[in-house]
């Protein structure tokens, strides 16, 4: 009988030893799992650091970035995780997007994308803006940190009095290739309010340009739905800058540095807007008879 109890005792002791070896130390402290695993899961170092870290060194770019259409896009969405770049004191370790593909990842026209989001087919867009060479990259015209070249205007622009109605449908910038749908409310015809501006516009060089091409940059951002006013020269240069890739039927190109020097020779204020001299090219200015005008 004694032998039997010794045997039982041995089995129990062995079972306890095996159990203590098999069950990890912290198992069961927090539940049916190893509690240490929770702390271990926290040990990895983050690789995406956020725009504030980027702005520590790139404050100039960051200042532009927050004012334009890409304000909500994190630096690391395009440039990849920044941890390696920061650890190397800014030497490498970062993606520099190249070519059209990185832009088209978001902006290629697709039926599955929300219609309010800015999207293009490169062929149509290039045809519209007069770019002949299909190999030209998006960044030839658009600075990705400031894609609409509108930073100054965003500060000075005023909200259109009816803009909230437009935003019901157009939370993003209107696609310039779209045809106005039949039955669109008359209130959105610009001449409904702005007859004096539109009058005679058909004879002017910009007659084929839609009002919305220049005036309504609908965007889902804090700056959404602002009117373009007092634009600086860069806005006009979006279409009129002289470049090799432009087709013959593109709008007249301007050699901007030379033009700027010409103006300097004539001691003209360099801050002068294009429209101050070229008003006859667009439409009369300072005619603010529209509903809700502020001045």
């Amino acid at each position: 009988m004694l032998r039997f109890f010794v045997l039982i005792g041995l089995v129990v002791v062995i079972a306890l030893i095996v159990r203590s070896q098999m069950i990890p130390e912290s198992f069961g402290d927090l539940g049916h799992f190893r509690a240490d695993a929770v702390e271990e899961a926290k040990r990895f170092e983050p690789r995406h650091l956020g725009r504030d870290v980027c702005a520590d060194c790139h404050d100039d770019v960051a200042a532009l970035h927050v004012k334009d259409a890409h304000a909500r896009v994190e630096c690391e969405s395009c440039h990849g995780p920044g941890a390696t770049h920061v650890a190397a004191d800014g030497e490498g370790g970062i993606i520099r997007p190249d070519g059209k593909a990185p832009c088209l990842v978001c902006h290629q026209l697709m039926p599955a994308r929300p219609s309010v989001f800015a999207q293009i087919t490169p062929e149509d867009h290039y045809r519209f803006v007069g770019v002949e060479d299909p190999e030209v990259d998006c960044i030839a015209c658009h600075d990705p940190h400031e894609p609409l070249f509108m930073d100054r205007d965003l500060r000075t622009a005023r909200l259109h009095p009816l803009i909230h109605r437009c935003r019901d449908c157009h939370a993003g910038r209107t696609d310039e290739t779209l045809v106005r749908p039949p039955g669109h409310p008359e209130i959105f015809e610009c001449d409904y309010c702005h007859a004096d501006i539109v009058d005679g516009f058909a004879e002017r060089p910009h007659s084929e340009v839609r009002c919305t091409t220049c005036h309504l940059f609908f965007r889902e951002s804090d700056f959404a739905g602002r009117m373009l006013r007092d634009s600086d020269p860069r806005f006009c240069l979006l279409c009129h800058r002289e470049a090799e890739f432009r087709s013959d039927d593109a709008p007249p190109g301007i050699d901007w540095p030379a033009h700027r020097e010409d103006m300097a020779d004539d001691t003209i204020d360099l801050d002068k807007r294009c429209v101050d001299c070229h008003q006859d090219r667009i439409h009369p200015l300072q005619t603010r008879t529209a509903v809700g005008s502020e001045e």
């Binding site: 983050p46 995406h48 890409h70 909500r72 994190e74």
Partner: peptide, 23 residues
């Protein structure tokens, strides 16, 4: 997916949330 658990206690959102350009 771990909700990027290593980022949470450092006050950072998961990497997918962080980089989504459209929120």
């Amino acid at each position: 997916c771990t909700f990027c658990y290593h980022r949470l206690d450092k006050g950072l959102a998961p990497a997918c949330v962080h980089t989504c350009p459209r929120e």
